[in-house]
């Protein structure tokens, strides 16, 4: 981009096109896909600023400006919904995010290849079981006479129904999430681990490094780019805590700690009328925050570790 080498725009375009002609050819189907299935429907986002009327369609409905955004933000539950959504995401980042990394590291240290493979196969299983069934089991286990409650009573807790008690809801939610997802989550890290050159370990052993040194100085740096990428992607989901599992676990007594944006939107859909406009507005609001977060995270990690999404 120095002033001396400045050529005409057309020349630069031609050179780029000819040097990367196959790359453009390869990009074509992918770009077409994104245009048709992702960008073309985006005109629909305008119903967040309109009062959607089936008869008039998305384009023809009347503009109402920021009305639905204002209703949500000024609504009585705004603060609580934001707090619960952010807290649950935050706990997930702290507890659920590192869990598969740790498990992958431990799996990697197993000596027997056969045992390792068996463990791997088994810990993937919960991923395949429907959330409805998983939640049914959670209900059973943490009820007044459930196994987990029994265990906690042995440790000195007062007997209660854990799902009925606001104090335990988030713990039950996060821990059961780890229980179901930790095995499946290791896949990506185990795959990254195979990319590490075995010679590095041999050299380290010759230098007298013990197991913990090897993990700290070779394994972790080896999968650091994957961890960073996953972390950025996870940060971009902070506002979108899913509703299905919470709906199956919460009750009016735990709304105080369990009600998140997506469950609120779900309940809105169930009450009078079909609130496409209001729900789109809330969705847009969440997305904007998510997108801001991922932009920031990307800038920060690019400065710190030279790994970034773009």
């Amino acid at each position: 981009m120095t002033a001396g080498s400045k050529k005409s725009l057309w020349q630069r375009v031609r050179r780029e096109l000819s040097a990367n002609r196959y790359v453009y050819l390869m990009a074509l189907p992918v770009v077409i896909y994104y245009i048709i299935f992702c960008y073309a429907p985006m005109y629909g986002a305008q119903i967040a600023f309109k009062r959607f009327d089936v008869a008039k369609g998305i384009m023809g409905s009347d503009w109402v400006g920021l009305r639905y955004f204002a209703e949500f933000i000024n609504g009585p539950y705004f603060f609580r919904l934001m707090r619960n959504t952010l807290l649950i995401s935050f706990y997930e980042l702290i507890f659920a995010f590192p869990a598969p990394i740790l498990l992958a590291l431990l799996l990697n240290e197993l000596r027997s290849e056969k045992f390792k493979r068996t463990v791997q196969t088994i810990i993937y299983l919960p991923h395949f079981i429907s959330i409805v069934i998983i939640c049914g089991m959670i209900h059973d286990f943490v009820s007044r006479d459930g196994v987990i409650t029994d265990l906690l009573v042995l440790l000195g807790m007062e007997r209660t129904n854990l799902l009925g008690d606001p104090a335990f809801f988030r713990s039950v939610y996060i821990i059961s999430g780890i229980w179901q997802g930790v095995g499946w989550g290791t896949i990506i890290y185990l795959s990254a681990l195979t990319g590490i050159d075995p010679q590095q370990y041999e050299a380290a052993i010759v230098d007298g490094a013990n197991r913990f040194h090897q993990i700290w100085y070779i394994t972790l740096p080896g999968i650091a780019p994957t961890i960073t990428t996953m972390f950025i992607l996870q940060l971009g989901k902070v506002m979108s805590v899913g509703f299905e599992k919470i709906i199956l676990l919460y009750n009016p007594n735990t709304y105080e700690v369990a009600d998140v944006i997506s469950t609120y939107v779900y309940r809105m859909g169930l009450s009078e009328g079909t609130q496409f406009s209001a729900t789109t507005a809330i969705g847009l609001f969440s997305s904007a925050i998510n997108f801001l977060l991922i932009l920031t995270a990307n800038q920060v990690t690019r400065k710190l570790s030279h790994t970034s999404l773009w």
């Binding site: 009062r51 009327d53 209703e71 609504g75 009585p76 539950y77 009750n251 009016p252 007594n253 709304y255 105080e256 009600d259 609120y264 309940r267 809105m268 009450s271 009078e272 009328g273 609130q275 209001a278």
Partner: peptide, 25 residues
């Protein structure tokens, strides 16, 4: 309800229902 009524109702009714459920319990 007319469409205008339904539109006005919808924003209020979700809050009322949530609050009512919670407080009764």
């Amino acid at each position: 309800q007319t469409p205008e009524e339904a539109d006005e109702l919808s924003s209020m009714i979700t809050n009322i229902n949530s609050y009512h459920e919670e407080m009764v319990i």
